[in-house]
């Protein structure tokens, strides 16, 4: 059995025809070629595959691609504006939040959603909201630091009336 539907990813609509059993993560990576969405555990534990569905973080490995029909998906490829990094990407870079960076797309998308809803979370709230993303390199502190750098960058962008987020 195949199903056909429109997948809206990073503002671009693509007609997809696929088996309904295939996950959103597999279709994003294999059919759309957007391999920035990483697959770690593939059963909802590690958070590497996190994408935004209508702005909210979801596990793309625990979502069927067909369930995304009619929704707006954002992947890590949708964050930067050309060569200009998204403030969250820039902040993670500055705070050494990347090591092997396998987990980074998931962390950054979770962070983008968190800061869109709560522009000034406490360290505790950051830990709570990112608790569904696993990192095996950094020990987390530099990632949490990166979120705090992003908070300051976004606040000063907002204050100066600029900003690209």
């Amino acid at each position: 059995m195949t199903v056909s539907f429109t997948l809206n990813v990073n503002g671009a609509a693509t007609e997809v025809s696929t088996e309904p059993r295939r996950t959103l993560s597999d279709v994003i990576r294999e059919d759309l070629g957007l391999t920035g969405t990483h697959l770690g555990c593939e059963h909802g534990v590690c958070g590497a595959c996190t994408v935004l569905l209508d702005g909210a973080p979801v596990r793309s490995c625990l979502t069927l691609a067909v369930q995304a029909d009619g929704h707006e998906i954002t992947t890590v490829e949708g964050l930067a504006n050309g060569d200009e990094l998204h403030p969250v990407q820039q902040a993670m870079h500055e705070a050494h939040g990347f090591q092997c960076a396998f987990c980074s797309p998931g962390f950054m998308l979770s962070t983008v959603a968190l800061l869109a809803e709560n522009p000034n979370p406490s360290r505790h709230e950051i830990r709570e909201e990112l608790s569904g993303n696993l990192c095996r390199c950094t020990g987390y502190h530099t990632i949490l630091d990166g979120v705090e750098v992003a908070i300051r960058a976004l606040a000063s962008d907002g204050a100066s009336g600029g900003g690209d987020a």
Binding site: T50, P57, S110, E128, S131, G132
Partner: peptide, 12 residues
């Protein structure tokens, strides 16, 4: 709710 999975799990 704070004990149920994580944010991304609770969203779906």
């Amino acid at each position: 709710m704070p004990y149920v999975g994580h944010r991304a799990i609770r969203n779906r």
